[in-house]
Design a protein around this nucleic acid. Structure first.
Length: 112
DNA sequence: AATTTGACGCAGC
DNA sequence: AGCTGCGCCAAAT
């Protein structure tokens, strides 16, 4: 392999893969869980690795308001809304309705 | 090498 | 309760 991604990108991808279907989380939660110190790095890391890999459910990562801020980064701008809707999450005007109801935090893994 | 930008979040106003 | 500014860290120019 000519290029190797930094370890924190791999960590972000690993956490995103653990998001259950029908649930969503935000950048800050992952950044806090991984102690990256900056939520900006989450979206950046996913754009670097996630978009290129369809096996990563990057569509379940939103901003703190529950808005689909990353939809333009996808090949199809409607991919996030379409996929989340298919998973049973109501979206209106690029924003998840009842965001708190579907909100998922990585700490829930420790409670299992 | 310095500046700008980005799938963000929070405090202050 | 919404708008603005600042902090955050890495990459691109």
């Amino acid at each position: 392999m000519t290029n190797q991604n930094p370890s924190y990108i791999d960590s972000v991808v690993d956490v995103v893969r653990l998001i259950p279907a029908g649930r969503v989380t935000n950048y800050g939660a992952i950044a806090d869980f991984l102690a990256l110190g900056s939520a900006r790095m989450i979206g950046w890391a996913l754009n670097k690795s996630g978009i290129n890999d369809p096996s990563i459910p990057a569509h379940r990562v939103l901003n703190r308001k529950g808005q689909l801020t990353g939809r333009l980064a996808f090949k199809d701008p409607d991919y996030m809304e379409r996929t989340l809707t298919k998973e049973g999450i109501p979206i209106k005007d690029n924003q998840v309705q009842n965001f708190e109801l579907y909100y998922w935090h990585p700490e829930e893994l420790l409670d299992q």
